[in-house]
């Protein structure tokens, strides 16, 4: 089936099998391997991407054909003009990652969180990332990083928008 998907601001037209999952479409058809596949069964959240900028979705549990006509933002779309997104910079500053496997999903889940709730408290952050599993750094520094980004984005709201 022919689909047209805008990923990180760029439009892609591809012919895909309906059973192709969005995560594999991004990684294998488009070569965007920043989106990770962890559990492959919608539990771990490594594969989270943003859909139409305001919804975090697990791309292992969605078909690529469902993204037809939509805008997807992956971790590759966060950095703009060589400058890390405030969330990425905050994960760096706060040591919010160690092996980095869960990081793309953590970033995209928190990216959407901050769109809906620009100033979440600690409990709200922990709840929002409850579907994203980290098995090495631990959540403490991830939460700190999201808090830092929230503060920075409040001071500079234009930095929140990426993609198109």
């Amino acid at each position: 089936m022919k689909i047209a998907v805008t990923v990180n601001g760029e439009r892609y037209e591809r012919d895909v099998e309906p059973r192709t999952l969005l995560a594999y479409f991004l990684r294998e058809d488009l070569g965007l391997t920043g989106t990770h596949v962890g559990c492959d069964s919608s539990s771990c959240g490594c594969c989270v991407v943003a859909m139409d900028g305001d919804r975090a979705v697990k791309s292992c549990t969605m078909f690529a054909v469902q993204a037809d006509g939509h805008e997807i933002t992956t971790v590759e779309g966060l950095e703009q003009g060589g400058k890390l997104h405030p969330l990425q910079q905050a994960f760096w500053d706060q040591h919010g990652l160690q092996c980095g496997y869960c990081t793309p999903g953590m970033l995209m889940t928190s990216y959407v969180l901050l769109k809906h709730q620009p100033a979440p408290n600690e409990a709200e952050i922990r709840e929002a990332i409850a579907g994203n599993l980290c098995r090495c750094t631990g959540y403490q520094n991830i939460v700190k990083a999201i808090q830092q980004a929230s503060t920075e984005l409040a001071a500079e709201p234009a930095a929140a928008a990426v993609g198109s």
């Binding site: 919804r55 697990k58 549990t61 889940t109 929002a128 579907g131």
Partner: peptide, 9 residues
């Protein structure tokens, strides 16, 4: 229900 990301879909 499930987790907050699953609930967005």
């Amino acid at each position: 229900v499930a987790d907050p990301v699953v609930r967005q879909m």
